[in-house]
Amino acid sequence: MNELKTKIRIDNFNFYYGKKHALKNISMNVPEHRVTALIGPSGCGKSTFLRSLNRMNDLIEHTRCDGTVVVDNVNIYDDAIDVVELRKKIGMIFQRSNPFPKSIYDNVAYGPRINNIKEKKQLDEIVERSLIRAALWDEVKDDLSKSGLALSGGQQQRLCIARAVAVDPEILLMDEPASALDPLATTKIEELIHELKGKYTIVIVTHNMQQAARVSDFTAFFYMGEQIEFDETKKIFTMPGKKQTEDYITGRFG
């Protein structure tokens, strides 16, 4: 683990919804160009933690946090941080695919256009490259003017991935990206995650332990707002260090 470069360093991170202490003293080093899975039962705080990494929780009223989240040597909770710039660097894929009610092209071009890329040729290139990267190009290249909502569930989720990579993020946060998809579409997303990790640092929340075992290099197990264990996925699933982790992955609770 030593030879891996740390992309996100979390130190003593706490998060509160009003009086509820949702995340307790979380510390971990997320390695660059690897897939880190967050697992744990519902309500354990894994999604809250994921949304803390691009400050999406800022949008919810009456929340607060302390501790640090350092991305490339910068604490993203520093007052001087521009959240908008931060989110360009850290893309997010949501549980329910949420393409805009626009064409496939306009969905992917949304982010670049916000970054003031207006030239048609350049946009065309970005759209094509992003769709290829999201393994959707071959299925949609003949009709990019079709509405994103007309695609199947799995295609919609890949469109959302294409939309996220179009702004050239360094990190991709995925919140149960395959939980609403059928097994075939899930397999496609998992293969895609495997390919994407060469270019991006990926943090993925999943309910599905087989999925965590299949796609991730590192796994963090959360329980009741605490990080019980964080280690290489191989190790978590073969020789967990904590009794609670073992109970969870062997299905004794959850």
Binding site: R87, G91, N98, P99, F100, I114, N115, R163
Partner: peptide, 20 residues
């Protein structure tokens, strides 16, 4: 979900309101 998708792409609040 649509607002969050836009904000997560690095759009400002105003851009999100205006474009989405």
């Amino acid at each position: 979900e649509l607002r969050e998708a836009s904000l997560a792409l690095g759009a400002t609040k105003f851009e999100t309101i205006w474009k989405i």
